[in-house]
Design a protein around this nucleic acid. Structure first.
Lengths: 162, 162
DNA sequence: CGTATCTTGACTAATAAGGTCAGGAAACTT
DNA sequence: AAGTTTCCTGACCTTATTAGTCAAGATACG
């Protein structure tokens, strides 16, 4: 099935989400994030390292080291993460043009370009409107629900679902 | 770069678009569509054949054969094509869930699921709102513009741009 | 010093996308 | 009826992208 966004980006998002959970309580280790969010640790190393270059997260080495957010969760949007992870914008020059060289899209568009642009913007809009804090709130709300009426689902290990 | 939708789907859309251009003038041959829309002919065979199973298009064999639409272009949406091309919906069960087995998404959701669902719906909405006729109208409008102020871009072979 | 952590780039494996081929079946033309 | 032109079908191949691993190094703490 066509994925909305590559796993790598999902991992990045979930890692930031996990960091947000620990916000204010010192650095969080890769190994912990990997565990909590069910991400292959070695792969996560690569991702977090890349993500560091965005400035959204920072790190500290050594025994008490780990990663942490540089801003509060309500000042980070999903869009910040997604945009960084997939180079600059899917929006420009005729999003899905097959032959960018000959496509005069940016000046005049082609029959399809306006639709692709609307799609791109629609996706971006959702990402930009969603902050990490929103996700934390979702999470909290769901946990409360589960506490009220526990089921088999509530036993499931954390971090399985993106 | 991450593609919004695979080329196969883009080809399908462009093929239907091309058929719409010839609507009412008898079947259009694969070879013509392939040519007009710059799609590899052999690949297009596969795509059109699949698309036939959606009922959106039909075919006729033999010397005067080819493909044609079964409804008028304003009764076909891009969503019809996209939905058919990529199996049933990207929306259900936690669109991007990593571990569908353990994910209780459909009943309770996870912190991320509501966002993924909003993304899916946003995409689908654009697709569903756009008819093939809309694309034809775009195309017509752009051609008129070009006729008024011809540039190098206007010389470009047709069908390069999705 | 020793251990635990991040850092980095190069490497490999798996999967999906993109595309091709050959042989057959229908339908028209003459 | 013969021949040609088209669609039909499934199996096949190739390439690009995604996913993931590894090893050696650098930093920091105790």
């Amino acid at each position: 099935m066509a994925q909305i966004t590559p796993k790598k980006n999902q991992y990045a998002l979930r890692a930031v989400f996990e960091l947000a959970k620990h916000q204010g309580r010192g650095p969080t280790k890769i190994s912990h994030i990997a565990d909590a969010q069910a991400i292959p640790a070695r792969f996560l190393e690569v991702i977090l390292n890349k993500l560091k270059h965005s400035g959204l997260i920072a790190s500290k080495r050594g025994f008490t080291g780990g990663y942490f957010l540089t801003r509060s969760p309500d000042e980070i949007t999903v869009g910040d993460i997604m945009n960084f992870m997939q180079g600059p914008t899917r929006t420009v020059d005729c999003a899905a043009c097959l032959s960018k060289v000959n496509c005069p899209s940016s000046r005049r568009g082609c029959a399809f370009s306006s639709m692709w642009n609307r799609v791109s913007r629609a996706i971006l809009k959702v990402y930009d409107e969603t902050t990490i804090q929103d996700l934390l709130d979702n999470d909290r709300r769901l946990q409360d629900k589960r506490r009220q009426s526990p089921t088999r689902a509530s036993q499931t290990k954390q971090g399985q679902c993106l």
